[in-house]
Simulated scan of single mutants.
Amino acid sequence: MVVESVFSSGALSSNPALCVQGLTVHYGALVALSDVSWSVSPGEILGIIGPNGAGKSSCFEAVTALVARTGTISLNGRDVSDVPAYDLCALGMKRAFQQNAFFDELTVLDNLLVVLGDIARPGLFSSIFNPIAAFKRRQLASIRAATILKQFGVHEQYHPLSPKDIPYGVQRMLSIALAFGSGAKVLLLDEPAAGLGGEDMEILKQILQRLKHEGVALVVIEHHMDLIMSVADRICVLNFGKQLAYGAPQAIQADSRVREAYLGTSS
């Protein structure tokens, strides 16, 4: 489902999957984030951009309850401001980080099976007293994991390998697949295009567009302007921890304040 943007700069959706209001983060005396508000709806991509040190990653850390913060965070209409990080996943909000993180001692396929959790594990009782059913469950889980990996551009030839032995571009796609796991209502991606180019960039673009059309609400921090401008429905620009601009990509590109933040000049 594709949801057309009903936002103007600074407006909030009436039916957001994730809504952030007044988000503020302090690291001691340093104000890393100040009164930031945005939202993203199902089937929509929100881009978060800004110069280095603008507060982009701090924004994700705050939304996912990994740092102390003030403000309100709502997930599908529920206030989750006090929900700890380890419980947000079960509510449908998942995240991928800037740096790839895998179980290198496991195969690519087994990495995803670990993420699938109870879906892939038959349990001790079943393994002992009904081993045939347990074996079939593991088989079905492996088929499902392989299907998910291929949907994220991680093809079969890589499944039996260690993540450290696959190309970097495929590692980036694997990190998104592991974050998504068995499904997500809201998926936060921190610089998914870092280090990518050419064909890998196009694959990433296709993955983002597919997730959007499947109704996932995506929030993407990105430095690759060509990518984010081509896929995002709206963009939030941060600078020195403050929300500098918020709106459609065309409006952001035309905003003199944004040009000045990136280039140091408004001309």
Rank of each mutant, 00 (worst) to 15 (best):
P131G: 10
Y158Q: 15
L112N: 05
Y86G: 01
L106T: 03
K205Y: 02
V31T: 09
Q250G: 04
Y246T: 00
S58G: 11
T70K: 07
L196Q: 03
I132Y: 11
V114D: 00
T72Q: 06
L238T: 00
I48W: 02
L66R: 14
K164L: 13
S39D: 15
H155T: 14
G181A: 07
Q157L: 12
P16C: 03
Y86R: 10
F97P: 02
T70C: 06
G22V: 06
G43R: 06
D165N: 15
A145W: 05
M173A: 14
S5K: 05
K185H: 13
S256A: 15
Y27L: 11
V114Y: 05
F135G: 03
K242D: 02
P167W: 12
S34L: 02
G195K: 06
S127N: 11
I207P: 11
D255S: 13
D226P: 11
V6F: 14
A134Y: 10
L196Y: 12
F180C: 00
C59G: 02
A85R: 02
H26N: 04
G197F: 01
T147W: 10
D255T: 03
P249E: 07
A184H: 01
P192C: 12
V115L: 01
G195Y: 05
A54S: 14
C89F: 00
V186M: 11
P131T: 09
N239T: 07
G50A: 02
Q21Y: 01
S13G: 12
E191A: 06
I119G: 13
A245N: 13
D118M: 08
S13V: 11
I252F: 07
